[in-house]
């Protein structure tokens, strides 16, 4: 594999993994605080699945550069993370969390559907595997957007507020990582432009059918994954503290 291809692939896999790690940890903050026991358990499941996906992406990176997934997750500082800002935002209320999960699940499902055809076989295999769970996640959050949007005046208002806040942030999911154009040219990853068009079509349709108005002003749209919200520092401080305090953690 050519050096610049390999570097670009490492950058892409890191971004994919970091999105999953941060979203997973954000969702885990609901554990014990869900609106009802059944949904508490459901979201904990989703959080574990997303962390499992991160393990898959870090595993593919390890094959390329020998990096240790635990080191990457627990011993990198915020400045070295390549997560999208949408996933760093505090969990907010249930509407905020469900909307973010819906916007992300839809993006991830569409991306994985296309990535199944990657010319890089390990990535094609991983996409096939992850897609199964992701389809179920999407059904769950799709249902929640519909029920909150068409539920009560208050649930609609909360979801609409979440949408206005998140819509611009969500666009960052479609900003290529450094060297991604090389990977697209090699057929290794899908073209984000095409994924974005599908995402806009599907998300707009479902949001509008759920009684929501698409924001006229898209608001702040992050562009570089080297920039982060201030929230990334605090979430990592919490997530990494145990690993950094006792690196062996053999005894429990």
């Amino acid at each position: 594999m050519r050096h610049e291809i390999k570097q670009a692939l490492i950058a892409k896999l890191t971004a994919l993994a970091d999105d999953e790690v941060i979203l997973s940890h954000r969702n885990s903050e609901w554990t014990g605080h869900g609106p009802i026991l059944e949904e508490d358990i459901a979201l904990a499941n989703i959080a574990q699945d997303e962390l499992g996906h991160a393990t898959v992406w870090f595993g593919l990176r390890k094959e390329l550069d020998g990096s240790d997934p635990d080191q990457l997750a627990f011993f990198r500082d915020a400045g070295e993370y390549r997560s999208a800002e949408l996933l760093e935002l505090p969990k907010g209320d249930w509407a905020f969390t469900m909307l973010r999960q819906f916007l992300f699940d839809l993006y991830e499902t569409l991306w994985l559907e296309a990535a199944k055809h990657s010319s890089y076989q390990p990535l094609a295999d991983a996409a096939n595997k992850i897609l199964r769970e992701e389809r179920f996640h999407l059904q769950h959050t799709y249902a929640w957007v519909e029920r909150l949007g068409l539920g009560t005046e208050e649930s609609n208002r909360r979801l609409q507020e979440a949408l206005e806040f998140q819509w611009g942030y969500a666009q960052q999911l479609f900003v290529p990582t450094p060297g991604e154009d090389l990977l697209v040219a090699e057929g290794m990853v899908p073209d984000l432009g095409a994924i974005k068009a599908q995402w806009l079509e599907h998300s707009s349709k479902h949001l509008q059918n759920s009684g929501l108005k698409l924001p006229i002003n898209p608001g702040y749209q992050p562009t570089s994954r080297t920039h982060h919200t201030e929230h990334l520092w605090s979430i990592l401080a919490e997530m990494q503290s145990t690993a950094r305090w006792d690196t062996e953690a053999k005894v429990w």
Partner: peptide, 13 residues
Amino acid sequence: ADPQHALLTARNI
């Protein structure tokens, strides 16, 4: 809240 919601949570649990 409804049958489809019940199926989704039942699958998780």
